[in-house]
Design a protein around this nucleic acid. Structure first.
Length: 474
DNA sequence: ATGTAC
């Protein structure tokens, strides 16, 4: 059975596409991007549609690609009564997310110092595979980060109280249960608090290249030629281990509660069971850890900027989570209901009618931060109420890979990737040349095309485009 | 994404 175009940028996976689908699937792509969605990703959208208690549609954002069980770029919401929770719908890097700091500096004043600045940031913020921090958190501090996330980080002197207003969930999600975090996850997570990690995670110095919506840009504090800093990272080994450990528990729960799943990777538990509660409690720990992590990294970034540009300001514009399950109220068939919304490689994009958006952005909607791949533009958008009707208030999270890591390694070398970026005027620091090859700009879809879909659907409005000047990676 | 293997 074929998927069907039902509107511009909307394709439907009909209920008959595979047995057991409870709702149709929806893939939000342009005709051009449709060609880039592999058949396996469509199958995953259909698989998710078979899970108990799913409401609306099993959805894939324009940057969707194959993931563990659920597609990356997947959004699925489940009823509190009769629904499930699944680690595959959240991802291994729990609360991987993006934070944007806006400065009061002009690019022309920063450009001459870019290499010095980047060296200092590379040193101040530990990065790389298995990197450990400057922080040396104690066991007790680790628990506090699980329980209170960025709120705890502020108490420890990282960032300021007002930063919390500009984080999703104020940087601290309720419901953490540290007793459900195993010894191994704690052991991996403790030394990694305050580290960037590897892969597509980065810290980037950017310039505001274009303003699309002057009114919203002004309210977000953005202007052309401005320096911004974007931080993309998550919960490191802690979140990964929590996901691994609970997948094991939930695979057994699938048998225990007799859930019929078309793919073992969709391991899940019915909401209200101990297994579901335990995963949720542990997932919140990792989510809070990630907010603390980004808070600490932002603090060190501010220290470096203060060293080279004394008195300069780096204000937090916003911090979004793009790998998390959340309890949210949504209108389902005209009635308000509490749902477990899974966003995996998908960003929340709440519009002005939601109370969750920061008071400073009242009447606008939340900032939606879409990082580009290394060397390509990132975007700031503003969530719209239409997203509530179409996607439970969700948008894409990035550009999405078009080539595997191994394929990239066969095709590029780190040295040539770095040289090409330098030719484009982008400075790069990295702990591993191989990683630069795996993250070459060519292995990702063009982020602008993905953003166009979201903008044209009315899910989120384009506000500004940011281009990289210098990037620090694992 | 990730101590890329229990």
């Amino acid at each position: 059975m074929e998927i069907e175009k039902i509107d511009d940028n909307i394709y439907e996976v009909p209920i008959g596409y595979r047995p057991g689908m409870r709702v149709p699937g929806r893939i939000f792509v342009s005709a051009a991007l449709r060609e880039m969605v592999e058949p396996g990703t469509v199958d995953q959208v259909a698989n998710v549609a078979t899970l108990p208690g799913i409401v609306g549609h099993s959805m894939a954002m324009p940057d969707a690609h194959l993931g563990y069980g659920f597609p990356i770029g997947g959004v699925a919401a489940f009823k509190e009564q009769g629904g499930i929770i699944s680690p595959g719908g959240v991802g291994f890097d729990i609360n991987c997310g993006v934070r944007l700091l806006r400065s009061d500096l002009q690019a022309r004043d920063v450009q001459p110092l870019i290499n010095t600045l980047l060296d200092a940031l590379f040193q101040a913020v530990p990065s790389g595979l298995g990197s450990t921090g400057r922080l040396h958190a104690t066991d007790r501090q680790l628990t506090e980060s699980f329980l209170r996330g960025a709120e705890w980080a502020v108490e420890e002197g990282y960032g300021v109280e007002s930063d919390l207003d500009f984080c999703e969930e104020n940087g601290s999600m309720p419901g953490a249960d540290p007793s459900q975090v195993g010894v191994k996850a704690r052991k991996r997570g403790r030394p990694q608090l305050g580290t960037l990690g590897s892969g597509n995670h980065f810290l980037e110095i950017q310039r505001v290249e274009e303003i699309y919506n002057p009114e919203i840009a002004k309210r977000f504090g953005l202007f052309k030629g401005q320096i911004t800093v974007m931080i993309h990272c998550g919960s490191r080994g802690a979140g990964h281990q929590i996901c691994t450990d609970h997948l094991d528990v939930l695979s057994k729960a699938v048998r225990k509660y007799n859930i019929d799943i078309p793919d073992k990777q969709l391991a899940c538990a019915p909401l209200g069971t101990p297994e579901a509660d335990h995963y949720f409690g542990a997932m919140v720990c990792a989510a809070n850890y990630a907010w603390a992590n980004r808070h600490i990294i932002a603090h060190w970034t501010r220290e470096v900027f203060d060293r080279y540009f004394p008195g300069s300001q780096l204000q937090l514009l916003y911090d979004v989570a793009h790998n998390v399950a959340k309890i949210e109220e949504h209108r389902v068939e005209g009635k308000k209901e509490r749902l477990y919304v899974h966003r995996k490689g998908a960003t929340r994009a709440f519009g002005p009618s939601r109370t969750e958006i920061p008071a400073a952005y009242e009447g606008l909607g939340q900032p939606v931060l879409i990082p580009g791949s290394m060397g390509t533009a990132s975007y700031v958008l503003c969530g719209q109420d239409k997203a509530l009707d179409l996607t439970f208030g969700s948008a894409c999270h990035g550009s999405g890979r078009v080539m595997s890591r191994s394929q990239a390694l066969r095709q590029f070398t780190g040295k040539e990737v770095k040289a090409a970026l330098n030719r484009d005027g982008i400075a790069v620091r990295s702990t591993s040349p191989g990683m630069l090859a795996e993250e070459a700009p060519q292995v990702y879809k063009p982020s602008g095309d993905v953003v166009d879909v979201v903008h044209n659907l009315g899910i989120a409005t384009r506000v500004a485009r940011l281009v990289p000047l210098g990037v620090s990676k694992g």
